[in-house]
Simulated assay, not measured.
Amino acid sequence: MKCALKLIDVIGAIDERELKEVNVKGTQFLLEACIQENVKSFIYTSSIEVAGPNTRGDPVINGNEDTVYSCSLKFPYSKTKFQAEQLVLQVNGEVLRSQDKMVTYALRPMYIYGEGCKFHLGLMDDGIRNRGILLRRSKKESVVNPVYVGNVAWAHILAAKAMRDPKKAALIGGRFYFISDDTPHVSYSDFNHVVLKPLGFGIQERLALPLPLLLFLTLLLKMVQVFLKPFVKYTPRMNCQLLIMLNTPFSFTYEKAQRDFGYTPKYSWEDARTITTTWLESVLPQHRALLKTH
């Protein structure tokens, strides 16, 4: 079994050519190496962002792999992840030199949280700078279903085991699966508040500005970025794609993964929340100290 490395970029800080080199060509090279070395199974860690949301912010509530959704991927990270996923799925059934057939499929985790998550740290730092109040970037009603990193890892283990069973391999080969767990459905901002609230953080009651105005401001920032490009690299911390993602109800069930290869979350929501908050508590003092020196 092989899993491709990837670059993650939600703010557009990485050049699209570099994203394509790693996410697409890197995956292609791994697939070619697997074929040459008679590696029979390949699991690709994809992303919820290959599914959307689209530029209109059309919602999906408890969707599944058969949900019809019109999505034109424009953000480089989303595009390269989707292209790599398609490469992996298309190789399913490839005949190896050993005459075995390769089995491939993709897992699409929701927003992954847990110990080591850099997004938690960035939001925590913003809260420290804002005197203990987290900045609200998503509306309360824009519910999503984050997934704990330990459950994502567990899904990979169960998927790998399923590949050893010829009947299951024939069923799941060439398919993608959404991976979520029993984390409560809330907005991105409210979720981050849940794991940081025990450490004394509050959160803004509402968005700082109405969403249409925030979208307009992101367009202005994009224009500034384009204007400055010949002279200096400038990457706004917020863009239209990210703002829409943060403010679109977008959730998917794990029922198909449960049915086809026996996935059920290994970690309960209570355990996942405790582990995440405990980790954040362990790094909080050094982040407070570091921010004081800047």
Rank of each mutant, 00 (worst) to 15 (best):
M1N: 04
M1I: 13
K6C: 15
D9N: 09
V10T: 13
I14R: 03
I14L: 05
I14T: 13
E16Q: 15
V24C: 03
G26E: 07
F29I: 14
F29V: 15
C34A: 13
I35T: 07
N38W: 10
N38P: 05
Y44F: 15
S46K: 08
S47G: 06
I48C: 05
V50T: 15
G52Q: 11
T55A: 12
D58E: 14
N62G: 09
N62P: 01
E65T: 03
V68S: 13
V68E: 14
Y69E: 08
S78M: 07
K79N: 00
T80H: 02
K81D: 01
F82S: 04
L87I: 09
V88F: 03
V91G: 00
N92T: 07
N92C: 05
G93Q: 05
G93E: 04
V95M: 13
L96H: 10
S98K: 11
Q99N: 15
K101L: 07
M102R: 04
L107A: 03
P109M: 12
K118Y: 04
L121V: 15
L123C: 05
D125S: 11
D126A: 14
D126Y: 05
I128S: 07
R131L: 08
L135N: 12
K140R: 13
V144Q: 09
N145L: 08
V147H: 01
G150A: 03
V152M: 04
A155F: 01
I157V: 15
L158N: 02
A160E: 06
K161A: 12
A162T: 01
A162I: 02
R164F: 12
D165L: 01
P166N: 01
A169P: 10
L171V: 11
I172K: 04
F176Y: 11
Y177K: 03
I179L: 07
S180I: 04
S180A: 14
P184M: 09
P184I: 06
H185W: 06
V186F: 06
Y188W: 14
S189L: 06
F191E: 02
V195T: 11
V195M: 06
L196E: 05
P198C: 03
Q204R: 07
E205A: 13
E205H: 10
E205G: 10
A208M: 10
L209F: 15
L211Q: 02
L211K: 04
K229W: 09
F231R: 01
K233G: 00
R237A: 08
M238C: 06
N239W: 01
Q241R: 09
L242C: 06
I244H: 02
T248F: 08
S251C: 02
Y254S: 14
E255R: 15
E255Q: 15
D260M: 08
D260P: 07
G262H: 08
P265K: 15
P265L: 13
D271T: 14
T276I: 13
P285S: 12
L291G: 08
K292P: 00
H294M: 11
